[in-house]
Simulated assay, not measured.
Amino acid sequence: MTTPASPSLLVVDDEHGVREMLTMALEFVGFEVKSAATGRQALERVIRYVPDLVLLDINLPDLDGYEVCRLMRERGMAMPVLFLSARSELDDRVRGLDLGGDDFVTKPFELKEVAARVRALLRRYGAGGRPGAGSQLTVGDLRLDPDNHQVLAAGVPVQLTTTEFALLRYMMENPGRVLTRAQIQEQVWNHRAGGSGLVDTYIYYLRCKLGHRQPSPIRTVRGVGYLLCAD
């Protein structure tokens, strides 16, 4: 009987101690781990090893983590990116997610939390960073194809980031249901840290990209959260 291969990770951090600690901890819980100390080295190893997920520090000595992530997405590298950073401001999180990152852990972190975030991202996207297979979703004039990462609004293609796509997918899986900000953040970002401002910001982005139809299909339920109208 063939044993399934363990998920492969790339740990990118310029601090030797952090790289070693993460590598040992993640190997201990069953992952295959490679590491890199610079942004350019990270890009080279992503191409060489094609990991299932990248843990990416922001403060690197050559290309910072934001630029590494941007270049990865520009070159069609779709595996999930988990940012590691001492920065904890909402703007830093939003910038990282806008550039194609999938989650954000603030230093100092607990190793158990990092491993849990990694497992959650791999469950969500699967090996190679592809969203899990599923049937097309249709709500009103919105159509979402999880397999091909495509969205149509009234027949017009809509370009969404990975996070915007995950947010819209969650709402389309729950049409007509009021979703609290905490529920959205737990589902889309796998945690509640960062405050409701992160959810509000991405709802705004999503409304803009879906067009300026009035009323918007995404309704605000004051003091509670949001719902996607089915009509």
Rank of each mutant, 00 (worst) to 15 (best):
A78W: 00
V46Q: 00
G30F: 13
E67Y: 00
I47K: 15
G100L: 02
D62G: 14
D98R: 07
F104V: 04
G39S: 11
V105A: 12
A36H: 12
G100F: 01
R95P: 08
G96V: 05
D64P: 03
G96T: 05
E110A: 06
Y125T: 06
L43T: 11
T138L: 01
G101C: 13
G96I: 03
R119S: 15
L111N: 05
R73Q: 01
R130F: 09
L63K: 00
G39R: 10
V46T: 06
L63Q: 03
D98S: 09
A116H: 08
T161F: 05
P157V: 15
R124C: 08
F83D: 04
V139L: 03
R130C: 07
Y125K: 08
L137V: 10
R75E: 00
A36E: 11
T138S: 03
L97Q: 04
H149T: 00
Q159A: 12
A37M: 14
V118M: 11
V118N: 13
Q159V: 08
R45L: 14
Q159S: 12
G30Q: 13
R123A: 08
Q41F: 05
R45N: 10
L144P: 04
G39W: 04
E89G: 13
R117Q: 06
R48G: 01
V105H: 07
V94F: 05
N148Y: 07
F104D: 06
A78Y: 00
L43Y: 08
H149D: 05
A120T: 01
R123C: 08
